[in-house]
Design a protein around this nucleic acid. Structure first.
Lengths: 225, 225
DNA sequence: CGCCAAATGTAAACTACCCGACATTTCATT
DNA sequence: AATGAAATGTCGGGTAGTTTACATTTGGCG
C-alpha cells in the first residue's frame, strides 16, 4: 500500500543515497508512518522499542524535562531531520518528547535494531551516518559556546540569522521566515526568559532591523542583524 | 621499533577490541607517537592532515578561542580518550588546541583517512565508533542543560561529583582526587568567573564538605555534595 | 635562599537578566 | 458577537554573577 511512498521518503534523504533499492526496501518493510497535528505530543524516548524517526514534513520541537520539571527546548527540527535514539543506544535517563509546531507533520520511523543491521551491512552508510552524528555534535558544541560567551541579544541575533538561512525565503539580503514559533519558544531556544525575548524582539523591530508578527518574520538586511 | 608498543596502546582501548591483530597492525603502521610535558600546547585542528588522537597517559584540556579571543574549555580528557576530528570531517572553522595539564602525557595519532578506510572495512567497528560519538554528544547535551537550568554552585557540585567518580580514588563514601586543575580551570569548566569559583570552593571547604589544595581534593562524603 | 610569576583570596561597584504581577492583544471556538 | 485562553507587552524590584582592583600565598627555579 504505502510502500512506494515510504520508499521515496527514505530515498530522497541524503543519508540514504548510497543504498540500493533493495536495501531501502528492506528498511521500508519495517517502516512506521504517522501523521500528527499542531500541538500534538509525540513520546519517543521511553517508547516500547527504541526507534529512529525521520521528520518528513513540518516542524517539531524536542523538549526535555528534568527532575524539577524544568522544560528545555533541545532542538527545533525541520523537514528531513532525524531524531530519536540517534546515538544508537537506548537511554531511559533522558526524558524527552516531541511537540508539533506546524499545522500538519508526517513522520516515519524504523526500529533501531533494523537500522543497526543495515549499518553493519553497509559500511559506507555507516560512515555517512557517523559523520552525520558528528555534525550534530558540532552544532551542539557551537550553541554551547554561544551560551557561555554571548549575551541574550547576541544569541537572539545569531538564532535569527541561523533560522533565516536554514528556512527563510531569500531575496537578496532580505529574508522572510515562516514563523511557527511563539516568543516563549524563541526565549527557550536562546536560553532567556520570555520577557527578555519580547523586549529584545521589540527592540530589533524599533530599529527596523526585523519585522515581527505571529505569522512571519521579515529581516530586511541580514547583515544588520 | 615502537610497533609493539603502539600495538598494545590501541589494543587495550575498548573501541578496538573487535579488531583482529592484523587490522590493528594496519592502523599502527601509520600511527604517530608523541610525548609532551605540562604546559605544552598541541595544535591539532589546523594541522597538515586531519588526524584522530588517542590520549594514552596523563590529562589535557581542549580549549577553543572565538573571534573575540575568548578562551573556552571544551573538554578535559583523561587516559584513553580520543580527540581531534572525531566527526570525521575536517573543519577549519573551529579554532581548537590542547594544553597539557599533567606532568607528562603520551599521545598517539593516526590519519583520518586511514581510520575511515578501517571503518569501511569493519562495519562492527564503525557501529561502535558511532555509538561512541553518540555518547559524547549526549554528555555535551547534558552539560548544556546543566548550564541552562542550574546555578554556579550546583554546577560546581555536579562537576566535582563527576570528576570524583571518573578519576577519584574511592574509599567508601570518601573520594580523593588528584588535582591537576587550577581554580581558573574549574571556573571555565563550570562556566563562571574565577572569583566565583574560588568563593564557592572555599564555601564548600568551610562546610567541611571538601578539602581542597593544589595537589588534591578530598571529598569526605560524596552524598553531601 | 631569594626572586618572580602564577595561583589564590577578598571586597565593592555594577549590570544583565530573572521573576512576579499585571494589562493588552490576538485568535480560535461556539 | 461573545468568550476565554494563549500570546504578547510593560514595569520595577531583587540578585546571582561579572568586573575591576588589589592583597596574599605558593611553588618553581636560578
Amino acid at each position: 500500500m504505502y510502500d512506494e511512498l515510504k520508499y521515496w521518503y527514505l530515498r530522497d534523504h541524503k543519508l540514504f543515497w548510497t543504498l540500493s533499492m533493495s536495501q531501502i526496501k528492506q528498511l521500508c518493510i519495517i517502516t512506521g508512518f504517522k501523521k500528527a497535528n499542531k500541538g500534538d505530543i509525540i513520546y519517543f524516548s521511553s517508547s516500547d522499542l527504541p526507534r529512529i524517526f525521520l521528520l518528513k514534513k513540518g516542524n517539531i520541537k524536542i523538549v526535555s524535562i528534568d527532575e524539577e520539571g524544568n522544560e528545555t527546548i533541545k532542538e527545533i527540527l525541520q523537514k528531513g531531520d532525524l531524531f530519536g535514539e540517534l546515538s544508537l543506544e537506548a537511554d531511559d535517563s533522558v526524558n524527552e518528547y516531541a511537540k508539533v509546531l506546524t499545522d500538519e507533520v508526517s513522520i516515519c520511523s524504523f526500529l533501531l535494531s533494523d537500522f543497526e543491521d543495515l549499518l553493519v551491512r553497509n559500511p559506507t552508510l555507516a560512515l555517512s551516518y557517523t559523520k552525520f552524528v558528528g555534525l550534530k555534535m558540532k552544532r551542539f558544541k557551537n550553541n554551547y559556546s554561544n551560551l557561555v560567551s554571548k549575551d541574550a541579544k547576541t544569541r537572539l541575533s545569531s538564532f535569527l540569522k541561523d533560522w533565516a538561512e536554514r528556512e527563510g525565503i531569500q531575496d537578496g539580503k532580505k529574508y522572510t521566515i515562516n514563523n511557527y514559533l511563539t516568543q516563549a519558544d524563541i526565549a527557550q531556544i536562546i536560553c532567556t526568559s520570555r520577557q527578555t525575548a519580547t523586549l529584545l524582539l521589540n527592540e530589533l523591530e524599533e530599529k527596523n532591523i526585523i519585522y515581527y508578527n505571529r505569522k512571519e518574520i521579515i529581516i530586511d538586511d541580514i547583515e544588520k542583524l
